[in-house]
Design a protein around this nucleic acid. Structure first.
Lengths: 212, 212
DNA sequence: ATGTAATATTTTGTATGCCGAATTCATAGT
DNA sequence: ACTATGAATTCGGCATACAAAATATTACAT
């Protein structure tokens, strides 16, 4: 088996993000470095490195002398994030290889149809959604853009747990994914881009009511 | 005078970026943490924190065990960055308050006209250009978007010194800025957005030949 | 009882030290 | 002379130690 040979800061970052998905941290909570480090079984140094990375991604905010805290959630910020991701993913889809898009379209359609079937726990659904978008953008040659999208989406993870336990928006999401895939199958990339944009805007509105 | 009361990592980050503007670091160069820390008069800890931040912004890359190095420049990456910033600034302009845009339009025009007059050193010009764009986007209410633009632009600073010593593209840049400002004065924001997009694409092409 | 000042405690920010991995140089063998 | 193998050294990654700031606490005065 391949032993984990990656910087601790990266592993810590991912662990914190997945805890965030589970809703382990309340937004707006101050982070105590010593206790969190002890909890994770690492020293403060790599933990702080992870925290600084997350602060750069907007997951945390840092105030001089007061350390780090999970950035509070707000409808306004969520809308801002959705607008950004919509623009970035649209761009990514725009500069994707059309041939590649056609080749993955069947898979995208299939995944979208399987969507509501496995109504497993929330985390699985979230991963599923992310994977679908990742596949959609897999033909984008702009590496920096893909990294940036990943980074911005990290900031949205604070909102992930808020959608738990409601199947209706899930069905809507799947329907919109099917629509995008069908446009790609029909070789109409421009319409797919528009549908993707709509997907984010609609998803934003679905979420809005759940944010305090 | 107000004494500097900010985390060292931020001051270090800015110092490194301004050194980058001056072309002090060759792209692709490995960074020796100990010697750089000694040079800056700080310890390795806040330096590493700054390096990690810069790596998150794409200014540096980090390889396991080999530490940090200035990410090598390439035409491809520069094009990627320009496409991203074009999309982000377009979005920012798009969701700006039209009334505010009209109110700053005269200033923007004036600044653009003053552009080539003070043909001072390169750094001043770069700052001037950045300030113009900052003012242009000052009416954008999407805070996260503005932060993101700043962050992506940090990655472009590796290319800043390459444009030194050529006035022709500067004149073109100023002309395009005037064009944008005039659209805003005429209350045609949509055209201004398009002109802004063109500005980035043209600026990209102007730079291309200078990148190895 | 409440507000304020002084002190104690907690927690962050920074510096230093140690260990292991990775690179480099030297040496031996073909 | 060239490659391969091993030793030495350098350097990054992480832990620990220290300093400074912020928060909590207590004592005192009004």
């Amino acid at each position: 088996m391949p032993i984990e040979r990656r910087p601790l800061r990266e592993q810590i970052r991912e662990e914190l993000l997945s805890r965030l998905d589970r809703g382990d941290f309340a937004a707006g909570t101050d982070i105590n470095e010593a206790s969190l480090a002890a909890d994770l079984g690492v020293s403060r140094t790599p933990l702080r490195e992870a925290l600084i990375t997350l602060a750069g991604e907007g997951v945390l905010e840092s105030n001089q002398g007061r350390g780090f805290r999970f950035a509070p959630v707000s409808r306004r910020e969520f809308r801002e994030l959705c607008e950004i991701v919509a623009a970035l993913e649209s761009l990514a889809l725009d500069c994707s290889d059309p041939a590649h898009l056609r080749s993955i379209a069947p898979d995208l359609l299939k995944l979208a149809q399987d969507f509501p079937d496995n109504v497993a726990e929330q985390q699985v659904i979230e991963r599923h959604d992310d994977e679908w978008h990742d596949l959609l953008l897999s033909g984008c040659r702009n590496e920096r853009l893909l990294d940036l999208i990943t980074s911005v989406k990290a900031g949205m993870r604070r909102y992930a747990h808020l959608i738990a336990g409601d199947d209706a928006p899930l069905e809507r999401e799947a329907a919109e994914h099917r629509r995008i895939a069908e446009f790609l199958l029909a070789d109409e990339p421009a319409k797919a881009v528009q549908a993707l944009r709509d997907n984010w805007i609609n998803g934003m509105e679905r979420m809005m009511s759940r944010i305090p």
